[in-house]
Design a protein around this nucleic acid. Sequence first.
RNA 1: GGUCCUAUCGUCUAGCUUGGUCUAGGACAUCGGGUUUUCAUCCCGAAAACACGGGUUCAAAUCCCGUUGGGACCGCCA
Length: 523
Amino acid sequence: MSRQSTPQSVRVRIAPSPTGPIHMGNVRAGLFNYLFAKQQGGVFMLRIEDTDKERSKPEWEKDIFENMQWLGLLWDEGPDPAHHGASFGQYGPYRQSERTELYKKYLLKLLAEGKAYYCFCASDELEAQRSNQMSLGEAPRYLGTCRQLAKDQQEKKFKEGKPAVIRFIVEPKVVVFDDLIRGKVSFDMSLAGDIVIAKNLETPLYNFTVVIDDYEMKITHVIRGEDHIPNTPKQILLQQALGFPGAQFGHLPLLLGTDRTKLSKRHGDHSVTRYRKEGYLPEAVLNFLALLGWNPGGEKEIFTLQELVEDFSLKRIQKGGAVFNVQRLDWINGYYIRQMPIEELTRRCIPFLINAGLIDPWPDVKGEEIWYMAEKRPFPEGILKEEDIQKVISLYKDTIQPYQDRLKKLSELPEMIDFFFVDNLDYPKELLLWKDADAATIAHALERAKEILSGIADDKWTREHLEEVLMPFAEQEKNRGYMLWPLRVALSGKKASAGPFEICSALGKEKTLRRIQFALEKF
RNA sequence: GGUCCUAUCGUCUAGCUUGGUCUAGGACAUCGGGUUUUCAUCCCGAAAACACGGGUUCAAAUCCCGUUGGGACCGCCA
């Protein structure tokens, strides 16, 4: 196979800041970048934007790593992980706080070339100026007071110890770029003022570090949220001033809350960790997020990561924002749960079972760590064996769910199955009564069921056999519910559960009879 | 307020590039029915949208113009 030209290989990144837990918006941007990179045979990278020293925290950085790993969105280039003391994938992340010298070099260059200057204006004055401009109906911007400051005046202010920031001279020209998703976008930068690119030589700011890093990392496509559109012309001007080739830009539609404003804390907690702890599966989260703002054109709704990679296209990304609709996530999650092999599902339930106190955690794993271990460890040792749990979960996987909803999240599972493992069920006698049946009828039916069940040999105690034997007797009642309902309640203590034969077989003969006896004593 | 982005059922969307096959398709949610010992699964069905106004055209959800609505940004945060 021959090619006329070798296109420059695609290199993309996501650049979250570790100032809080990584949220669904970050992940969706990450997913789109990942899909684009993989489909193009390119490179997907992670860059930690931690230039804000006050707000950046190691715990949030860890939150980014853990969740990206959980979702299977591993980056494929970066520094030696050992250097970071991290064990995520093959590579560590790029981290801006480790590149101060690099930024300083370029800062000095801009300063030397007269493309940037020190500004001594006090921030409260600037703020007053901004609100004044706004009330006059003007675009709020810096007027360039310090741009023309003579050398000696500058020296004087430095000697006086006046705090200074570094501003970049924004050329008053029209900047046009061809957005990968929106087409031509243009800005008249004469309406903008000079922007602050660093607090000082050691503390560069966002718009500046992005430009340097994207250049140094040879990023070819900057795919990010729509909220960055206004930053783009500034960054393009910076690229030009530095003589950088510049990447292509593509701005993704925003993830919205139900009020159609940008998804934020106001809309509740949309951190990935929260969804994980509620029992959403990573494949469901990815599938859901991919279809928010993108669609391959057909009527297919369920996609594996690999299928998403194959079908992905930037051209098919929606331009308008998409409301984050939890009901749809629930539906997709439920679908994945029902499709999942029971062994796999049981394994994924481990942290939830531990959390609910049904099983003990691994002795050496504590606190939050349980959430990261299920995939790495065997089932924890304890009274309850993996097979026991598996057997019970399998009764629920395809069908049953307490109260009104089906099984949508793994966190709902423990409360559905706990009755299998406790000895004394707690439920009111009235729950045993089926429809209009009176106590005597129900007691009689239960007594009957007990008799029949006691006659069944241990080695015949299977779901199929139990049903075969018991059903004819149930049919003798006014309605088979008269026997089956109280039996099921006696065994589960719940108004909604798996069917009586399923429970009997999982419980075993001894426990089954004991529970029926317990119910009978209520009469 | 200024700048920029945007507009198909309540929500996510297909259709728009190459106008007719669109009395606008699918999915989630909602409602009704069937299956069923409960809840659910599953199956069937219903209701539900081209923001508005002009043009162009034999013909517009699809092309053009305008209006209106919605959103984002306007930090020595990212």
